[in-house]
Each structure stands twice: as structure tokens, then as C-alpha cells.
């Protein structure tokens, strides 16, 4: 895996810039490495602004997702979007679903 995004050594400053990690260049989400609030920014250039609060270890969308779009982390598919997700939004069980382990039918 490759590390990019903000260096974890970055000191959190007054709730604006937050450490985050993008695990692969093809990922559509980053993982925040500290609790972050709406309005905080992540990324090397601070380009991505969070539109809602996101807890430590949770994911933030890097790109637009339409319902059914693949969500990628570790350079792999971790699920599909169940609704439209804009950059800066929190990505979790409310808008991302597994494609596996279903009660009816597999893959």
C-alpha cells in the first residue's frame, strides 16, 4: 500500500487541518486519523473540506459517488454507494453497503 495524503505527524491546529490517510492512489475515500468537525480540511494541500463531522478512523469521500458506484479503499472495492455522496461527506453504513454476504444470492 502507498501512503499519501496528510502526514500523520501534522499537529492538529484549532480544528481546521486534520491528519488523514489515503491508502492507495485509486481510493475514493480517505481515513481521518483524528476526530474532525465540519469545516475542517484534510489532504496535503488542505483541498478537501469536510461537510460534516467525522470520527477518528472513519472515512471521508474524496470524489463524487452516485448510487451504485464502487467505493474504494486499500486500492480495492469495499462496498457500493447507496445514495449520492459528495466530496467531504462522511462515508459509512448510512450511505455505503457491502456487496457480499447477502441473505439472497451471492455476487
Amino acid at each position: 500500500m502507498t501512503e499519501s495524503g496528510a502526514g500523520a505527524e501534522t499537529e492538529p491546529e484549532a480544528g481546521t487541518r486534520r491528519a488523514a490517510i489515503e491508502l492507495d492512489g485509486t481510493d475514493t475515500v480517505v481515513t481521518v486519523l483524528e476526530d474532525a468537525e465540519a469545516g475542517d480540511v484534510v489532504g496535503d494541500d488542505g483541498a478537501l473540506e469536510l461537510t460534516e463531522s467525522v470520527p477518528f478512523g472513519h472515512k471521508v469521500a474524496l470524489v463524487d459517488h452516485e448510487p451504485g458506484d464502487e467505493i474504494r479503499k486499500y486500492g480495492e472495492v469495499i462496498g457500493v454507494a447507496t445514495e449520492s455522496i459528495e466530496p467531504g461527506e462522511w462515508v459509512h453504513t448510512h450511505n455505503c453497503d457491502s456487496a457480499r454476504g447477502k441473505a439472497e444470492g451471492r455476487r
Binding site: T31, P55, G57, I78, G79, H92, R100
Partner: peptide, 15 residues
């Protein structure tokens, strides 16, 4: 797991 940021089994497995 979910509270800790893991959304799907795929994500959990990859980690």
C-alpha cells in the same frame, strides 16, 4: 467494528 469506522465486511477483511 462499525463504531470504529469499519463499514463493510470487505473493508474489514482487507485490513
Amino acid at each position: 467494528n462499525q463504531e470504529g469506522g469499519l463499514t463493510t465486511i470487505e473493508e474489514k477483511s482487507l485490513g
